[in-house]
Design a protein around this nucleic acid. Structure first.
Lengths: 239, 239, 239, 239
DNA sequence: CATGAATGAGGATTCATTCAT
DNA sequence: TATGAATGAATCCTCATTCAT
């Protein structure tokens, strides 16, 4: 699944410890980071997310991140191997955070359309709440680190892909979804709509574009947008 | 409309002179650039597009761009005010290029669905032909220069927005498109699908994601993809 | 005499306490260090010797030394004033260690040539056994701390210088050594031969050079080397 | 042969161009350096030699080298790949310089003892004239870069080794040198004497030691020293 | 007394920009 | 106008040293 839902990251204390136990990342993020207080971890991540989201990987300044997190640069390098390690840790966190929100929706009752409704609502809420994480998600699709980033994100995207395709197939059996469509491709188109909707609520460029397409007051008409995109999707999938 | 179609940019000699006559950019790009041979301008742009697309704005190296374009750095600064000026000029060019392709499709005969068909085909062809320009389009949506970029791109996006909305309204009048939909929002969703399809043919991250959703051989099944997305859109808009 | 013989340093418990009683070094090494167990002192010195020998003074890392000695950096600074203090303490130790070995040979029976024989054998054994201490001896002759180092080493070098010169004079009286030579200069040349022989068994550069001069298997022909250098020296001094 | 003779390095303009044509070092030193005026190259090398000689590789400060050479750090990095590249270039130069002096002596008339006389005199003159280069020679035998350094120096050491051994064999045939000695080992001992004599005229530590062995006024009695070391060597080799 | 996390000054390296030729 | 060498501010990262626990 994509990174459309990014709730408060510090709810997930364990994600990092799981992370460093992994083989790939053993050297990117150090145990010392886990031992920090949640408050400090939070400051560091908030600071890093903002810096990376606003300036991109190359434009981000480690010293500024440290300063804004009210720790020393030296400490930064005791927690993370280097700039790339910090960046990937942040990406990982965003993904972990998202996974949790997604899991909630997946586990909930209901068919594809009901889940879609909940996802749309979640996008509208969480993209705005976690603007920087959403911007970072856009940033990370950019060339430069896409391979490493993909390693981190891929399995979650895989989960989403499967979920949508499976729900579509079930819908086809239940007779509520067209029979002549390719579940995988439709899952892909669906997620594409979600990704760009997410960006349209958080990224400056896409926000401007959203306003240009729909009007200056789009951001005050969440219900209309939700209703219309649901109609769009229903039409695409439905009978 | 978005930057989904990026054909050979050097077909557009005039874009730059129009550009520098504009108020905003008078200081960003210099007359001296226009006087260059098309071949040289071409080299500079190709080189710059590749560098910016592969490394992002901050990661791009002006000296490398100059070297690959087989001109001196000194010259670079005689043609463009600075790095930002060059970047914006490149973005402008990509947009101009796209506008031309779009104009062709707009001017062609046919209703919304026929035009959509042509656009999808154009995406599949041109995203691959102009990988770097497409990557640059993704890159430029990133924070950091989005405001300036938006100034350049906005009017073209406006054209697309209007086109889709107008065609939708016409379709509604003609009875081939649902009456209960918001033309502007549907135009927005439609363009969102196009943008992500475009990225999925050019940007590494999105290409991996495309493969994960649909399968390793997606890039060999253009006709199926085109057919399915058309079905998706037809379902969304159609009666 | 020079630092050609460097046996196990922890045989010399008293060297440090003597050392800190000295005026020069009162602030460089602290009483607290003496109170440590021999085993711990040993670990610290071994670790420090290796680090300084392999990376030089500036390249050595105090944190690494502490880590390898399985003590904390904090403790390091409770035992030694600073990096320089530790370095000088190590140098002092090497010298003390050497002095003991030397004392043994000096106190033994025999004329100059017999003692030389024993020294050569000792070099061949101990340079290899105490590679790092030997490397450190080379390192410490380098500019940067030579003045302070000299303060520590000078008296021992003085002892050697006197010993050789005295034995030479005795030999001259006894008629076994040429009369027309300057005992001091010959003592100097003799010790020069010893120093470089020592380095040639321990330091990478000099080992390569040794192989280049004599052949790849030099290090398997200790007896030949000993015999030849003795012949060389006998010829130089002898009648 | 060892680095005992280090005359003015800027006499050898061509050594660098030869150097960069070599495969190993193609990336360590750049063509741009060769294009500089001799005066500028001289300033850079003098500055670098002093800094490396006085502080060692790790202690040396590139910014200081640049400053003292009156060029910018940026330029430094246009001439040399990095700190290591500069260091090795300096080492290479010292060796090249020495080789030239050595070639002169080798090409001159005379048997082993006559050449030894000339070498001793050259050591006394050039070690003092090129104090920093001589210190650097001591420094470079230190661990840390010895492998790379050895690659640069080895062939010259080989030349010396061969020269001494060959001259010794000739001397044996001519009946002026003992028959029962190993030419290679004696060549080695001979060069060892030269190396330490050289250091004793330039390196602080060895200078102090020289004074301790021989007396405060050693540096005013070159002729005595030369005469005695020649006597030492004659005795070692001679009949 | 021991610890080891935290600090931040220092240093290697890069690169946008300038300017003499 | 074209060149590309020169510049030096900016930035990543290291490590000697401190100090709260």
């Amino acid at each position: 699944m994509h990174g459309f839902l990014l709730s408060r990251f510090h709810q997930h204390r364990h994600c990092i410890s799981n992370y460093i136990d992994g083989v790939i990342t053993i050297r990117r993020i150090y145990e010392s980071f886990n031992k920090l207080s949640d408050e400090k971890k939070d400051r560091i991540f908030q600071s890093a997310i903002i810096e990376f989201a606003e300036h991109g990987y190359d434009g981000a300044n480690i010293n500024t991140i440290a300063e804004n997190a009210r720790i020393s640069v030296g400490s930064m390098y005791q927690y993370f191997e280097n700039k790339e390690g910090l960046y990937l840790a942040i990406v990982h966190l965003g993904v972990e955070t998202l996974k949790q929100v997604l899991d909630g929706i997946i586990a909930s009752e209901g068919d594809l359309f009901i889940k879609i409704e909940r996802i749309i609502e979640a996008i509208q809420i969480h993209s705005r709440e976690n603007i920087h994480l959403t911007k970072l998600y856009n940033e990370m699709t950019t060339e430069g680190h896409s391979e490493l980033v993909w390693n981190i994100v891929s399995d979650m995207e895989g989960v989403t892909a499967n979920l949508y395709a499976t729900l579509t197939e079930e819908g086809q059996k239940d007779g509520i979804i067209k029979k002549d469509i390719d579940p995988k491709l439709f899952a892909f188109f669906l997620d594409n709509l979600f990704i760009l909707l997410q960006f349209s609520y958080a990224c400056e460029y896409y926000k401007e574009r959203f306003k240009m397409f729909v009007g200056e007051d789009v951001f005050d008409t969440d219900e209309l947008v939700a209703e219309q995109i649901l109609k769009f999707i229903r039409g695409a999938f439905g009978l």
